[in-house]
Design a protein around this nucleic acid. Sequence first.
DNA 1: CGTTTTCCTGGTACGCTTACCATAGTACAA
DNA 2: TTGTACTATGGTAAGCGTACCAGGAAAACG
Lengths: 335, 335
Amino acid sequence: MATIRDVAKRAGVAPITVSRVINNSGYVNEQTRARVEAAIADLGYVPNVLARSLRSRRTHTLGLILTDNSNPFWTTVARGVEDAASDAGFNVILCNTDESEAEQDKYLHVLVQKQVDGVLLVPASGAIAPIKFIQSQNTSVVVLDRRIPDSQADVVRCNSEGGAYQLTRLLLSLGHRRIAMLSGPRGVSTAEDCVAGYRRALAEAGADVDATLICYGEFSLESGYDMTVQMLARTPRPSALFAGNNFIAIGALRALRDAGLRVPEDTALVSFDDLPADLVVDPFLTVAAQPAYEMGRQATELLLARLSAGAPTTYQEIVLPTAIIVRGSSGQALE
Amino acid sequence: MATIRDVAKRAGVAPITVSRVINNSGYVNEQTRARVEAAIADLGYVPNVLARSLRSRRTHTLGLILTDNSNPFWTTVARGVEDAASDAGFNVILCNTDESEAEQDKYLHVLVQKQVDGVLLVPASGAIAPIKFIQSQNTSVVVLDRRIPDSQADVVRCNSEGGAYQLTRLLLSLGHRRIAMLSGPRGVSTAEDCVAGYRRALAEAGADVDATLICYGEFSLESGYDMTVQMLARTPRPSALFAGNNFIAIGALRALRDAGLRVPEDTALVSFDDLPADLVVDPFLTVAAQPAYEMGRQATELLLARLSAGAPTTYQEIVLPTAIIVRGSSGQALE
DNA sequence: CGTTTTCCTGGTACGCTTACCATAGTACAA
DNA sequence: TTGTACTATGGTAAGCGTACCAGGAAAACG
C-alpha cells in the first residue's frame, strides 16, 4: 500500500507537506496542494491512522461498555452515543458485558490497549476499581445510567428513583395495595433506586411495605418470568406487578398469560423502559420511559468536553427525568 | 503511561524480552518471566496495540458494515459476527449505512484507514466499486446477505428467492389470488429475489401476476405503512400482503389497524425476518425466518479463513436456507 | 570430544505519521 | 535599514512495539 512517502515522492514534496494537505493544517501553497491531491488520487493513498495516532497520541475513538446491546433500550443509548461521537469526528467501539464484571475488566483492558481517548461505562457493579483503572491510564471516563457510590467521575443517568416513585403512586391511586416489585440485580444502582422509589411511594401513602413482595433478579426475560411465577404463588395474589425493565416486563407478561391471567383485568402491570415505537404495533405497557437516546448523547458530549478541557476540577452528575406514559396495562381504578 | 521500555528497565531485561512474555512467543526463562510479570504489575503496564499493529501489520480487527443495527435482524447478525470474531481473538467495528452509498463509502475509508484485517459488507447497492476498493487496499472482504452481480468476492447469504416462493405458495394454498408484494429497494438483491420468488410461485400456480400489486419501497416502518395504504386503495382489495422484512410488516400491521381491517380475517399477512423471541409476548406473524446469527457467524469464519490462507483462488457463495414459520397472521384457508 | 539442537537474551532497525524546530522568502511597518 | 509577521517547506526524531538477525550458554547426540 502506498505510504505518505510514496505520495510525497510523486508530488515532489516532503512527507510533512503531504501531512499538511491531508490534515488541513499549517500553510500549503494552492498549487502544491493540488499536486499532492493528484498524487494521492493516483496512488489511491489512504492514510494509516495507526501511525497517526501513535504519533499524535489521539485515536479519535471512544469505548462504550454496556450490558446488552440487543436490548432496545441500550441500542437506543448506543445510537445516541454514536451520533454524538460521529458529529465530533469520533468512532465508537461497542462492548457488551452481559452484566459480568469479568467481561467488563476484559473490555476495559482492550480499550486501554487500543488507546481510546475516553470511555463511557455502564458499570456491571458498584465497584470503584474499574473507574480507578481507567483513570490510572490517563483516560477519561463518564459513568452511564448507574451511580457508583464514592467514585470520582462524571455521571449521566436517569432519575430511576423518581420514575419508580411515580409509577408506584399511579398504581396506588388506582387502588392497588399489593404490588410486587420485580427488580434487577442487587448492587446495581438502577435496581436499588427502583426499589427505593417504590418504598417511598408506599410509605408516603401509609401503606405497609411487604418485603416479601420485593424481588431482586436479573434484567432478563427468564428472570422476569420466574419472579412472576413466584409472586403469583403467594396468597393473596398481588394485584399489580412492577417490572424493573422491559425484558422483565415481557417475561412477566408471558408468565401471566401462561397462568391464565388477563392484563390488566386480573393483574395490572407497569414497567421501566419503553420499547421502541418501531418494534411494536400496539403499545400496551404503562411505563416510565427514560430518555435513552438523550442520555447517550449527553454523556458523550460531556466526555468529549472533558477530552478537550483537560483534567476536571469537579465532577458532574447529570440526572435526566423519566416520563410516565399511561397505557392499557395499568388498567382502571379498582372498584 | 508506562511503555515496554519502562517495564524492561525495571525487570532488568531488554524490551524484546518483555514482548516475548506478553505474547507468549519464543523462549523465556521462568524466573525472567516472573520478574517481567512483576514489573508489568508494578507499573500497571498495558501494551499499546497501535504500535504493535503498526509493526506487525495486523490489527486483529474486522469491519462490519450493515444497514441498520437497530433492526433486530441485523442486531442478531452482528451478534453472530462478534461471537465468531471474539472466539478468534478479533474485535469488530460496527458501521450503519442506513442504505446510503455515501455513508458506505465513508465507512469503507474509515475501516481501511484503521487498517482492519478484513471487512464484512452488506452492500447498500449492487455496485462493484466498493468491493474493488477494499480489495485494492489488500484487504479481504466477504459480502453478507446480498448478492453483487459479477463481483469477485465471497458471499454468505440466505435463500430469499426460495423463502419468498414458499411463503407465496402458502398464501396460494390458502386460496389467496390477489397478493400484494411490499418489497425493499430496487437494486437490492434481497428485495429483487423476494419478488422473483413471488413471481415464480404465482406463475407455477398458473395465477396471473398483476404487476401493479408489486411495490418497491424502503425496508422501514414508514414505507411499509405507505405501501399498504396504497395497496388497500385498490379495488378489489388484495386479500393478502407479503412484507419484505420485519419493519415493513409492522408498518403494514399499523396501516391495516388504522384502516379497521383485522388480520388475518380481513387481510392475511406474511413477512420475511422473524422478530427475536425476547421482544414479543405472543408471536403472531407468519414468516420466512432467516438464520441471522448463523449467517453472521459463517461469514466471519469464512473471512477469518481467508485472512490466514492468503489470496483465494476461487470465491465461495454460501446460501443458507430460510424456514417457514406458520402462525396466526396468515390465517385459515378462504372458503 | 566435537557437533547439533534447544534454550535464552539482546541489538538494531523498521512500521508510518506527525511534533518540533529550523530555514527562507516576501511584505509591510517602524 | 531593521524588525516583525506571515507564508511555505523541509529535516530529524519520536511515538511504541516487534521482525529479523545474532550470539552465547546449556543440553543432547553421535
